[in-house]
């Protein structure tokens, strides 16, 4: 599948770190992975992650509910689960609203 040229990825983040900080490409990519890994680990341990100026990743526990297969109309139970939501900071909301 082709990626949109408009999509920012780990590689782009690493490249900016490489360019602005002068760290090697490998080191820059390790730093990007490390940031993501620490956030994933915290959430894996049931912690919310709050980055001031950016937003908060918040965990929510959902109870079991009855869903329906939209194609067949058959009712199926949706098991209880933990979901991750993102609440953008006021600053991020403003920057996106302005465009």
């Amino acid at each position: 599948m082709s990626r949109s040229v408009n999509t920012l990825t780990r590689a782009d983040l690493a490249e900016t770190i490489n360019r602005k900080m002068g760290f090697s490409r490998a080191e820059s990519l390790d730093l990007v992975e490390s940031i993501l890994a620490h956030m994933c680990d915290a959430m894996g341990d049931g912690e919310n992650v709050k980055i001031s100026g950016f937003g908060s990743f918040i965990l929510r526990d959902k109870k079991e509910r009855i869903g329906r297969n939209p194609k067949t109309g058959v009712e199926v139970p949706i098991t209880p689960r933990r979901v991750m939501t993102f609440r953008a900071s006021q600053l991020l909301k403003e920057r996106i609203a302005k465009g």
Binding site: N6, L8, T16, I17, C40, G99
Partner: peptide, 21 residues
């Protein structure tokens, strides 16, 4: 840099994809 680059791309109307996250 990490969070600023994500913010900039979203402000431009783009997408950010961090596989696995």
């Amino acid at each position: 840099i990490f969070f600023d680059e994500i913010t900039k791309r979203l402000a431009e109307g783009g997408r950010v994809e961090l596989r696995g996250f």
